[in-house]
Design a binder for these strands. Structure first.
Lengths: 248, 248
DNA sequence: CATTTTTTTGCATTTTTTTGCTTGTTTATG
DNA sequence: CATAAACAAGCAAAAAAATGCAAAAAAATG
């Protein structure tokens, strides 16, 4: 393993777990702890991470603006981990934006070869870091609130593709009202996404389940997978499972 | 085995595995490691890969790692400050990507009302933070190395707009060869940008002036403004000023 | 075609980088 | 305060890189 590769790996681990132990890294990468220490030292000198006794911490974790104030980050990481199971080599995946989707983008395994379509700037940013993923950005006007593209051009573009899977981070899902949201432009785009894809997976924290908002994205029958942080056998999902949705 | 064949093979390996070892390549192709090193050096000079101790890494693999240490940041900030003077309320501005453009995006005054078109993810990200700027993202496939969209869709979209100003961060400019770059896809997009815009401003650190690379973006006559970190009366700019370019 | 020029390649030598190990010191923690 | 883990500094071996040089191959030239 090359030195730079090692350092990149360390940074990735830091971004993923917010901290690393020298001893873990040493065994994971089969090099001496001294080497790890020297790597951590270098990365710390260039302000890539914060060196502490026994390992290192993520910079953003300590001095952070971004990730610290993501609501229920741990739950979203769990959701992302489950969602990974739906993605296979060679797939065409269409994703929305949202913090849950970003977490998913972060943990995509490096070996994964797939094509991702998205209109979300932060998501595209994460996908573009990945070595083997082709990223197609769906352009148009960028909606300030949500950092995703909205508008006719984007919708037309979405209509012209036929992805295997649509990964949708949603704000509200309910067994009778279906999937809903509250930004008109965003809803139009998400509607088009669900229509275009062969299968649709909905990612949400359980807190948002059984709630609804003003604008409908799709019926519950159009959802194929529901992914939350809770165990899939929980009573909460009974009705959804009965409606034919696979709970992960 | 011919030199070109070898280099093509190396690039293929890099695309496949994201990294190569000099020693492996040496045995695989039955040439000395010196030759491999020279090949890697050449490929690194044309930004095809990133040379590291012991071998080389794919550009996409590495781009996330180098992120924070921007070369000559102070100079780029100065350039950005000067470039601000060209942007007026109500303008339609088309921008490329690159670290200099990002600096410009960061310092746009909050009162400014304008519409920005771009195919650069980090640039769009910055523009989207701005309270009064409309951002239109030019979608298509994302080029891993440069984090901007490339391809026919993007070029068609650019051709369909008529912005007042094109802000181009460039890698090489020379009085006789004009503006040049070394990534074919990126060059196509930049070409289209210059063609589309009423006026073109070129942003570059002086270090890149009077250098040229393999692929032409446009003639020097198509450039309206040249923005660098140096005083506009410096001798270095004489020839450019004589060619009718306004030096900022 | 002969010869000059340029490019490419391998080799020997020196220099630098990387890495693991040893020794002594510091730090964390019960 | 005792003890184990983590660290720092220095050293040495190995790997990789840089440098200079010469032979071979390819290209250009008349």
């Amino acid at each position: 393993m090359l030195k730079r590769e090692r350092q990149a790996f360390i940074l990735k681990q830091i971004n993923l777990h917010n901290r690393v132990l020298s001893s873990d890294l040493s065994t994971e990468m089969q090099v001496s702890e001294d080497t790890i220490r020297r790597d951590l030292m270098e990365l710390s000198n260039t302000d890539k991470l914060i060196k502490v006794h026994g390992g290192a911490l993520s910079k953003s974790f300590h001095s952070s603006f971004l990730r610290e104030d993501i609501y229920q980050l741990d739950a979203k990481k769990q959701i992302a981990t489950k969602a990974l199971n739906l993605i296979k080599d060679g797939m065409f995946v269409l994703t929305s934006g949202g913090t849950t989707i970003i977490e998913l983008a972060r943990i995509l395994p490096p070996e994964l070869k797939a094509t991702f379509f998205t209109g979300s700037i932060p998501a595209a940013y994460e996908y573009a870091k990945h070595p083997n993923i082709e990223v197609i950005f769906i352009g148009d006007k960028i909606s300030k609130g949500s950092q995703i593209t909205v508008g006719g051009e984007a919708i037309m573009k979405i209509n012209s593709i036929k992805p295997d899977l649509c990964m949708l981070g949603v704000n509200a899902i309910d067994i009778t009202t279906g999937v809903t949201d509250n930004d008109w432009d965003v809803v139009q785009v998400k509607k088009a996404m669900v229509e275009a894809a062969s299968k649709t997976a909905v990612l949400t924290i359980t807190e948002k389940m059984n709630t609804c908002q003003k604008l409908k994205i799709c019926e519950i029958t159009q959802v194929d997978y529901l992914i939350t942080e809770m165990d899939h056998e929980h009573d909460l999902f009974k009705a959804y499972a009965n409606a034919g949705i696979e709970i992960l």
